[in-house]
Each structure stands twice: as structure tokens, then as C-alpha cells.
Design a protein around this nucleic acid. Structure first.
Lengths: 162, 162, 162, 162
DNA sequence: TATGAATGAGGCTTCATTCAT
DNA sequence: TATGAATGAAGCCTCATTCAT
């Protein structure tokens, strides 16, 4: 808390006027960060894009986002798996998936995405991939270029296409 | 360290007979756990299996392993991303990927796996998927059955097949 | 540190608001004590006194000081010989000797003190004597009176007089 | 105690067969070291030497001894001033002074040493000087040569001569 | 006698939290 | 509202001492 106060140029005591606990602070911070990150995640997306284009946009968004904001992503994940999370957080997470689930659903309706797979599984298959890609990139110097990104997306696409 | 001692029914000082630091303890624990987990990961695998069967076995192994030993897996990941890791750990992690990379390589040579993708990317695509699946299962009660597992593996397969 | 806090009627943590370390505390304490002691050492001394009077005043001051503040003196010595001391301390100690060295030098110039002896040796000869006298007094009940003090100073004087 | 055991190539427990406490060990060590040091102190002394020669021999012995065995001397002093000492130690110290006191007494009887000074004071005057000389030499690179040593002894001699 | 693994009190330090100003 | 000095529980680690072998 001391470091937070110093970083914010306020006194320690002041924090406690706005937050009951350290846990409370962390909690509110998580929620804020979550929202900011999700927004970035959907940046530039327009429901009018062609399905594949829209999907790729989000896919790339997420990959880039995770790379550029690795610490944020990492914190969010750790926090989500920590004993701090409550049902409120989980509900929020659920709600945030919705846009992506909607896109997937749309894909199914357009006959472009396999309809024998449930949306959650499709979602997870894509999410997991770029998470790993990003982590590998950040931690171990796996290098990206346009070509590789395209190939990776194509792999994801093959996973789910009808 | 106090809690560890209590859990082990020994005195705090005793820990320091076997470990130089808290960090040392964590380190050795990580290495041990890592090995145990990796062994489970390759359980029942025989290089004589048909390629697809072998791949699926490992795929399922990992999924099951991650579900049954969620805390272990989680700890290993957190630790790996923590400031505690050193180059030794990273080298170990690299070395552990080898069997899977070998299988992937074999698949390529048999003409069963796309050869325009680098092995690491294929590896990450599969890894990421079951990581997410397992986490979802553990955290959010996503339910598995034989059918779902088969479908998920099939998705991974489609991702990489030639 | 616990005992220091208790003695000062404050909490342990409070100490660390004012001192970075135990070593830092000791350090600052040493410096403070050093200064206080040195001041007492030169008390009532005026450069206008006759040479022999001035010398005797300081001589007696030191003896009395060491007796009355035996613990201080003892601590300062132990500390000075401990691994805690740094060059800063040594420089300070050097600087503190200066007034006495100056007096000795003056004595030489007045032709009252042997000029074939270096100042440091003269200094040490006098210092060592009253150190021992004081320690003996404090530890073993060696008793002083005016006469004995006069004799002791006279001994020192004979040691150095021209 | 661990380090002592290691240094002695025995087990920790073994120490406790021969010494009740750490304090007991220290105590016996002090006594032993004391005796060894005192012996060195009187080395080569023969009561048949001329008075001045004998005194100088001891004087130089002590100076050399303190320089060559600085750690021993330092330990003995610290210990002597510590709460560990008991009356037994003090009695021993007293007894050890005897040879020197005897020499001083002899000097008086020969009319070579001032008889208006008590023996203890004479003893302390000399002791203090070479203590300081030695400490300065060890700690601060005060350099000795034959000439300086002679001068220093001469100073001591002037202090006490009849 | 000799061993050395085990003990646990005690030492230094950090940090979330409080409260008088 | 804002401050920041003060608090003290809790964390990591050391080391003199014991005891079963």
C-alpha cells in the first residue's frame, strides 16, 4: 500500500478513504483493468465486417493486446485464479465473453462454423492458442511476422470451420 | 515457512537443514513436481502406437492430468512466470517439450501433419487448447464426456493435419 | 531491536521509520555518542591557558570522562574495532585527535615538549595511560584522590617534557 | 558452536560432553588463551638480567605480542570487560600481574624507580602505552622501526625513573 | 564417548492498517 | 478530506541446546 500511495502521490491513509482494504483496492483495480482490457480486445470491431474478417480482427487484437499488455493480462489471470475472486467476478467474465460467443453463433448460422461444436469449446480452442503464442513470444523470444500470424489464424480457422 | 513446518509436523529450523532458503525449497519443490507431472504426461505412451493414437493419448493424458492435478499445474505455471525461475528451469522446460516435438516431427515425416507450420506453433496450438479446456472445467463446471473429448481432439487434429 | 523499542516505549516498526537497519541505528548512535563524548573531552579548555595547565585540564577531563561515562567509552571502543566501522568513522576519529595534536605541537614550539618524538607517539603515550587508569578504577576499585591524579599527570609529563 | 565443532572436526554434540555451555567453553578458552599469552609475555626473561634490560625485554615482548597476536589480545580484553567474567578471572588477572609488579618493586629497591608512585600506577602507565602503540600499528598502519621502539621505551622509562 | 538431526526461542525486518492532527 | 507517524502481527532465518542412536 505504501508503494501505491507513493506512486499516486498521496498519503497512505488517503487510500483508506476510498478503499476499505487492500483486497478491496485490488478488487476494484481488477474490475477496472478487466474492462479496459476487454475494450481493447474488441477495438475496431464492427458487426458489419464479413464474418471471417471480424473474427480475424478480434483474434489479432487479442494476440497483440496480450503481447503489448502482458503484465495486465498476466495479473488478470493470476487474480482470476486466486482466492480473491468472487461470484461477481465470474459473472462479469461470463458477460464479457458474450460478444465473441455472439460472433461464433453468427458464424454457425451463416453455415461457416461447425454447428456440432458448442460455442464454449470453439471459444476456448481459439483463446488457448493465442494465449500460448503470446506467452511464448513474451517469455522466450518466439518471433512473429505477418506470415506466421496468418498461419496461426488459419490453424484456428481450420479448427472450427464447417 | 512456518506453515510448511506445521504441515510437515516438524520445527521451522528443521526445514533449514534440508533447504538453504525459502527460494531453495520452492525451487526443489518445483523441480520435483515438474518431473512427476511430466511423467504423468507421457504415461502409457509407446512410440510404437500409430501416430494419431499416440498423439491422442498424450493429448488426453495432459487434459486429464491438468484436471486431476489442477493445483500442481497452476503452481507450476505461476512459478514459471515468477521472478524465481532461472535459466536452469527454462532449459528443463525446453527439454521436456522434446517428446512432443518429436512426435510432431514424426507426423510431418509421415505426411500426416502440415509441414508448412513450425513445430513450436503446432505444439502451442494443442497445448493452449487443453489448458483452457481443463481450466474451464475446473473453474466453471464445464462438463466433459467421451464425446466432447473426442470432438476437442478432432478440433486440434484439424488444426494441424496435412 | 526489540529491546531498544521496549526501552524507548515504542513499537519495533517505529524504529525503522528513523533507521534503515540495525547497523544504521548503531552507526548513528555511535556518531552521536562520539560527538557528545568528544565535547565533554574538551570542556572548559581555552587556548589561552598556559600550556601545562591546558594539557592537564584535557588530561583530567579525559580521565574523569572515561570514569563517569565508562559504558559510553567502552561501547565506542568496541564499535571502533568492530566490522561495523567504515572509512567515514576513521576519518572522524582522525579529525577529533586534532585539538590534542595541536596542543602537543604548540608545546613543541614553546620548547616545552621533546621535539624528537612524533606527535602521534606522544598522544598515544598519554592516552594509553589514562585509559588504563580509568579502566582499572572502574573495574577493580582502584581509588583516586587529588594526589594520585597529580602524580599520574606528572608521570605523563615526564614522559614528554623537553 | 556449529562452527567450533566444524573447525575441530567433531560433532556439535561432542562439545557438550566437555563443556556445559557456550559460556563454559568461552570461559575455559579464555583461561587457556590467557595463560598462553602471558607466557609469551614473559618469554626470554631472566631475573638475572640487569633491571633496565629486563624491563625493556618485557616491554618489547608485550608490544610484539600484542601486534603479532592482535586478535587474541583483543578477544581477551573484550571478554574481560564483558558480563561473562567472574571473580575467578579477576583473581587470575591479579596473579598474572605479579611478575611485573615484582620487577617494578625490585626497581624501587635498587633506587632506579621512583618510590613515591604505587606499583599499580607504574604498571598501568607502561601497559597503556604499548597497548595504544600496538593498536595504532595494527589498525592504522603506524609504522615501527628500531628507533621508534627505543624512543617509546625511553618515554616509558622517563615516566618512572627515580 | 561420539554423533548430528531436530528443536524452537529469539533476532531482524516488512507492511497492512489506524488515528490524532 | 488528507496526512503520515505509529503500530505490531507475521515472515524469514539463525543458532545454542538436546536426545535417540
Amino acid at each position: 500500500m505504501g508503494k501505491v500511495a507513493k506512486q499516486a502521490n498521496i498519503a497512505v491513509g488517503t487510500i483508506y478513504l476510498y478503499f476499505k482494504h487492500k483486497e478491496d483496492l485490488l478488487n476494484q483495480f481488477y474490475l477496472k483493468l478487466y474492462q479496459v482490457n476487454v475494450d481493447r480486445f474488441l477495438e475496431h470491431y464492427s458487426p458489419n465486417d464479413s464474418f471471417r474478417e471480424g473474427l480475424k480482427l478480434i483474434w489479432v487484437n487479442y494476440l497483440k493486446h496480450r503481447i503489448n499488455h502482458y503484465k495486465d493480462s498476466h495479473f488478470l489471470e493470476q487474480y482470476y485464479k486466486s482466492p480473491y475472486v468472487n461470484d461477481n467476478h465470474k459473472r462479469l467474465a461470463e458477460q464479457v465473453k458474450k460478444p465473441l460467443h455472439d460472433i461464433i453463433q453468427k458464424g454457425k448460422e451463416l453455415g461457416l462454423v461447425r454447428s456440432d461444436l458448442d460455442n464454449e469449446m470453439i471459444f476456448l480452442g481459439m483463446l488457448g492458442f493465442f494465449r500460448e503464442l503470446a506467452d511464448e513470444y513474451v517469455g522466450n523470444c518466439y518471433i512473429f511476422n505477418e506470415d506466421r500470424i496468418n498461419k496461426a489464424f488459419e490453424m484456428s480457422w481450420n479448427m472450427i470451420k464447417a
